[in-house]
């Protein structure tokens, strides 16, 4: 019996056939609009109109030199950095215990930890508003400790706390994967050589899981920048991170070109920083390879 043979020309283009639907979709709904966005960011802004074709660098100059916008850009970077830091700080011990530990109910534990993934963002936002709001049991408990002026709603700490909660499961998964790939005998070797548990973690586990930590950071930053509902309702006007500035420019001042310029520049800055981080991690590995 002779099997059905795929014609050669079909074989040659089969990879493209498989990719085509997604490519077309991305081109139509992401690449082209993104190009449009970049284009709009160069349009001049005229009060009273939304879009006036033209070319100006004024919005970029404003975003990158105006102290107000610069400080908000730094604030955004700081919120990203804090959320990444605390997410990883929480994710590492949990991931380590889940990978190395042997205990009953491990599956249930993982399910519990990942459950925020299944909860609607809007539900999460309103839960945090209630929790941080005046008169909540949390605030009643905390205010005697930190003074009556202490608040979490409409504050940077509150925003960071709630974002860490959202980002944590997303950060946990890559860290689990990275730790699971580390051979346990490496840790035993370190212990037998006299490194205590802490040194073993910092000298062996942590450096070997850097790729996982970087992808966790990448996902976390993406979440911070896209969890607009959190920025709007938990940080509010007190924590004007870039997504909120964009929202204001689009809705309140109708300065769409400025919104586009903010969007493009924050994208470039943040992903350039992450890219440098990944490059450095990759570079040190490559250097060790060559040395």
């Amino acid at each position: 019996m002779t099997g059905f043979r795929v014609p050669a020309f079909l074989q040659a283009i089969s990879a493209w056939i498989a990719l085509a639907p997604v490519l077309v979709f991305m081109l139509a709904f992401f690449v082209l609009p993104a190009i449009g966005l970049v284009q709009i960011s160069f349009y001049p802004h005229t009060a009273g109109t939304v879009l006036t074709p033209g070319f100006t660098l004024a919005h970029y100059a404003k975003v990158l030199t105006d102290p107000f916008y610069l400080s908000k850009m730094l604030l955004t970077l700081r919120v990203c950095a804090l959320v990444v830091f605390f997410s990883l700080l929480l994710a590492y011990p949990v991931a380590y215990v889940l990978v190395r530990g042997r205990f009953a109910g491990k599956g249930l534990m993982i399910g519990l930890l990942l459950s925020p993934l299944l909860t609607n963002f809007v539900v999460l936002v309103f839960s945090w508003i209630l929790l941080f709001g005046p008169g909540s049991f949390l605030m009643k408990g905390l205010q005697p400790l930190f003074g009556a002026g202490f608040k979490l709603l409409y504050s940077e700490s509150g925003l960071v706390i709630s974002l860490v909660h959202v980002a944590f499961p997303y950060a946990l998964i890559p860290v689990i994967t990275a730790i699971a790939q580390i051979d346990k005998s490496l840790e035993e070797a370190a212990l037998s050589l006299g490194a205590g548990p802490w040194k073993t973690f910092f000298l062996v586990v942590l450096p070997l899981s850097v790729p996982g930590a970087l992808s966790a950071a990448f996902v976390t930053v993406t979440i911070v920048l896209s969890s607009f509902a959190f920025a709007l309702y938990i940080g509010g006007d007190s924590v004007l991170i870039v997504p909120l500035l964009i929202w204001q420019a689009v809705r309140d001042t109708l300065n769409w070109p400025l919104a586009a310029a903010l969007s493009v520049s924050s994208f470039l800055v943040i992903f350039a920083l992450l890219g440098i981080g990944m490059h450095l991690a990759g570079l040190t590995r490559a250097q060790r390879r060559l040395a």
């Binding site: 051979d183 005998s185 490496l186 035993e188 070797a189 370190a190 212990l191 037998s192 050589l193 006299g194 490194a195 205590g196 062996v204 450096p207 070997l208 590995r285 060790r288 040395a291």
Partner: peptide, 22 residues
């Protein structure tokens, strides 16, 4: 005593060399 305080040398079957160190 924990392993790090026993002053023993251990050689593992898979060598267990730290891959990120020279």
């Amino acid at each position: 005593l924990p392993p790090e305080r026993r002053n023993l040398g251990v050689v593992f079957q898979n060598y267990a060399l730290f891959p990120h160190m020279s």
